[in-house]
Design a protein around this nucleic acid. Structure first.
Lengths: 354, 354
DNA sequence: CGAATCGATCGAATCGATTCGATACTTCTC
DNA sequence: GAGAAGTATCGAATCGATTCGATCGATTCG
């Protein structure tokens, strides 16, 4: 395929169209945008000239310079897309964002936040940005974006001045789940966490995790459990996937002596992985092991179980972020929003067997 | 949160920085871009002035106008994101694209192609566009984009002049699978297809499907099967999901009299759904029913089966599309690429039992 | 009939940077 | 010491549209 196949020379611009139509540039502009009184005859002339010249309409780049808007909302994802989108909860959220943004005629600029393209984030042509599952290390980038005067919305993030937060009750919800287990008589409880640091270091949760962890959501959920079971131990999964959960489950369950009677996983995928590990080790769920997840996504392959989990409104979260961005762009005042999870009791939890 | 919290007036521009630094605008520009000889002292002065004024660097919008490039690659997805990304195969492909684009410092502009935002696609500020799983109805949009002089790459699409195709051997691969079944002695074969039209109409495959179908990939795969089993029947799923496959499976398997002995599903998710339906109906796979999928994604919840399927290089496909776009933007000649699927025999297919 | 009004159109400034060609000033070479 | 080569900087044009204010007829009102 040849790059610049046909056409005589450069692409035509509005001025060329106006010249051919015998009107001024301003009138031609009005004819296209419809933002002003233009006689039907003139409009027809302009459109005909455009047709003749093969003019495809105003150049978006020039429009965005002049208007100061590009109609693009950036979405910053922490991981590689394949990691982030492996978990349906993130897709649901993105869908919520896309729903609102699409309706407002805005496109979503997907930006991953992997080292080398920090510059890309800082200089991307967008009007506002939504940070998804961001960690503390984003701070410099946030500073640049804010200096640029760009509205910033963060979904589940630390309080950062100038950044509108869309929150979730990660900590109290996790505490609720933990209390539920305690009321069932469980004392040896373990946690399978989402990655706590940018390197996705996997392994037993170190005692000093608070000092090194950077991932907001995982930290909050873990804190929720420690509120009820201080010093609770567990395992950091390498990502939110069934396989990662399975590996974490094996690590926690393989030594019969120190085996927990209940595991709180920080996502449903992880919970399912834990259940798989238990099955393979011949541990009965929920009789010998209670498992609680987080998110409340519908998972195939879970049958005959119905997971006890915290159901979060992911699509609404995304939608709220999208709406917040749109309203901030309108110059409105927007208050932070907080969403609540609903504790759903399935059949993967049972009283502790002494 | 207040919209324009602090800052005295308008955001500063390069001219203001240059003025404060006591240099000309051109020099200031050079100091930022590094594209020219600037003394260290001058650069320092400019940077200091920028610091003082809170200047966050050149405005991307102005840059893209002047340079004629915005550093954004559009990715047009046919469905809602939640539909498209439910299937891991699409995520893998997108990851391939993101991989290449990210490395080149380009962002991905996600555009869904749902009716009302056709205008958005036509006027989005991007340098090139990748069409994913596009259907015939995209033609008008393509015409506009091409008129704009924008490189267009399509993954699995009809041959459109001016559009670079990244292909997959959907038809011969499907034919190969069909022949394999025939060699195993199967005669009553059915297909579970991906949606054939934009409305995602679900139901038995009508005889005149060629007349109404618009979805390239589904059509090609179906043609591959009819090459071997002319007039083969089957069921159109409502999407690529396990649940849709399960419903299709029920529809095809519930009447014992007309039950097929083998089903070719157009995606692994659909295949798994069919297997689920068979299990629920007490039909043994592969003894009473052979099932073949397409894609070769790793699916949880498939155990103890190992799916017979066509393994396609999804990430490579995405990567090839990304590279093609980048090279087209460089003005290079790029040839279409065609990928091949590999037939993988698992344990979900067996000789027909008479 | 003169004035006010309205609709259509145009000119010119503007958005914020990049970049080409020119200029002034050094430094090096023979 | 004159000319060549090179470095740092600047001025002005340019990218392609939008938009404010002005202009000019035509219509309407008092």
């Amino acid at each position: 395929m040849k790059p610049e196949a046909s056409d005589s020379h450069a692409r035509p611009n509005l001025a060329a169209v106006a010249a051919l139509a015998g009107v001024s540039g301003s009138t031609a502009s009005l004819a296209f945008s419809g933002a002003g009184p233009v006689s039907a005859a003139t409009r027809a002339k302009v459109l005909a000239a455009a047709e003749t010249l093969g003019y495809a309409g105003p150049d978006p780049r020039a429009q965005s310079l002049r208007r100061g808007r590009s109609g693009v909302v950036g979405v910053v994802i922490e991981d590689r897309l394949s990691d982030a989108f492996r978990d349906p909860i993130n897709i649901a959220m993105l869908d919520g964002i896309a729903d609102v943004a699409g309706a407002a005629g805005a496109g979503l600029l997907l930006l991953t936040e992997t080292g080398d393209n920090r510059a890309t984030i800082a200089s991307a042509p967008m009007d506002a940005v939504i940070l998804v599952g961001c960690s503390t290390r984003l701070n410099e980038t946030v500073a640049t974006l804010r200096q640029r005067g760009m509205p910033i919305v963060a979904i589940e993030a630390d309080d950062i001045p100038g950044v509108l937060a869309i929150g979730l009750d990660n900590r109290p919800a996790s505490a609720l789940a933990a209390r539920y287990l305690r009321e069932l008589g469980h004392e040896r409880v373990a946690v399978v966490t989402l990655p706590l640091d940018p390197q996705h270091t996997s392994g037993p949760i170190p005692a000093e995790w608070e000092a090194t962890a950077t991932s907001y959501t995982a930290i909050e959920r873990l804190r929720g459990v420690t509120d009820v079971f201080p010093g609770v131990g567990g395992y950091i999964a390498s990502g939110s996937s069934i396989e990662a959960g399975r590996r974490a489950g094996f690590a926690l369950l393989q030594h019969p002596s120190a085996r927990p009677t209940a595991i709180i996983a920080q996502s449903d995928l992880l919970a399912l992985g834990v259940i798989r590990a238990a099955e393979e080790l011949g541990i009965a769920v929920p009789h010998d092991l209670s498992v609680i997840g987080f998110d409340g996504v519908r998972l195939d392959g879970l049958e005959p179980y119905e997971l006890t989990t915290l159901v979060q409104p992911a699509v609404d979260k995304g939608r709220a972020a999208g709406e917040a961005v749109m309203r901030l762009l309108e110059g409105e005042d927007v208050e932070p929003v907080n969403f609540s999870s609903v504790f759903h009791v399935g059949n993967t939890t049972a009283p502790a067997t002494p």
